[in-house]
Design a protein around this nucleic acid. Structure first.
Lengths: 209, 209
DNA sequence: CCGGAAGTGGAAGAAATCTTCAACTTGGAA
DNA sequence: TTCCAAGTTGAAGATTTCTTCCACTTCCGG
């Protein structure tokens, strides 16, 4: 157990909230690679304050995105309860991408661009079994071709996300069209050959290049 | 016309070739963002030599990738002569991605991640009309659904490329599976709604974020 | 073989970001 | 009201990469 941290002084807590709001805004529009100096300036505090509260960038990301990621995990759970496996899968992916479209930073996190391994790994450890079960069900129901795997689903996620990243700013809805293409492809592609390695999902989502 | 540059001294020309080979190797494995210092060190020269020969990074990229890009343009021309429009499209995309899989740097260039706008824009100005004609032919032939556009083709390119980038290193062939998914999606998705803006192709390929 | 133009190397200044820290300010318990 | 632990600030050192520059070396025409 972590020892109970003493509560923050009132002004410090106010600053902390202000920093979180500010950092979230910046990362929503610019992605995760925002400098501490930019955050401090936008919040009107000194850099030292940011470092005191979030000594590691990971600490900031945890505080910023923890609950958002729990939300996404909740979507996966909800989807896995869907009677129609394919409907559950498409609903989940569409919802997740919609959330990512509102925050570039969260998208980078969920799709494993950049740092942030701990948070991401935990999230995917929770979601992968759920998605796997859905994919298996969809295959058995004939909604997906034999040979379809959870890794294909992850690949679709990465693929649509890349269109989102490349078109954010000028065609904010283009990812929906890419999603239609990719999902139709999942249903109609010949996926019988060379099944991807079991570990591909983790690596797709955690490669830091 | 550019005025004729005087020929390089023999030792300088030797160094130039050495730098090009070295830089190509480094960018093939690490992407375009290799520092001049890394290039100089790997080639065994001083940084000043790199700067003297290639004052702007653009100069280096032009010299490195110019002919590779012409090769890809050639592929597009060859594809556009194919009787079967769909076969031409898939052949072209597969070939182009295969080349990108051997050089991460070239992939970044062709898919518009990073700088390099001049070279990329010229290439796409040449290829876009060819691809457009192929897509139109494929639609008329019933090989692609009504509403399919060249921008969808560009999106597929970007999508498969993103899987390539995320899996390079552990699953170097995974992009082929993603390509199968994306191409099957092009044929089977409902693409009748909200056609992408005309300018989307350029922007997909030239967004520098 | 000589002289000078061309070429080279790498130290040094500039710029961006990360990170620490010592002097200063403030909240709130007593 | 006093006092001090908690909090804040921004300057300053460390790092990294970019870019310039000048003393030194090399090539090659005459």
């Amino acid at each position: 157990m972590t020892e109970a941290a003493p509560p923050l002084r009132r002004d410090a807590e106010r600053n902390r909230q202000l920093l979180l709001r500010t950092a979230y805004e910046l990362m929503a529009s610019q992605g995760l690679d925002v400098s501490y100096e930019d955050i401090a300036r936008a919040a009107g505090t000194g850099m030292g304050t940011v470092y005191r509260r979030f000594p590691q960038r990971q600490d900031l990301l945890d505080a910023l995105f923890g609950e958002h990621i729990d939300t996404v995990i909740g979507l996966a759970e909800q989807a896995s309860r869907h009677d129609d496996a394919w409907a559950g899968l498409t609903w989940f992916l569409e919802r997740q991408l919609q959330i990512e479209s509102r925050s570039r930073g969260l998208g980078e996190l969920l799709r494993g661009r950049n740092q942030a391994t701990a948070l991401v790994r935990r999230a995917h450890d929770r979601m992968t079994p759920l998605v796997t079960a859905l994919v298996d069900r969809a295959v058995r129901a004939g909604q997906l071709p034999a040979g379809a795997t959870p890794a294909d689903f992850a690949a679709v996620h990465v693929m649509v996300g890349s269109v989102m990243d490349a078109s954010r700013g000028h065609s904010p809805q283009l990812w929906r069209r890419a999603l239609r293409i990719a999902l139709a492809g999942m249903r109609h592609a010949d996926l019988s050959g060379d099944p991807p390695d079991e570990t591909v999902i983790d690596r797709l989502y955690n490669d830091q290049t």
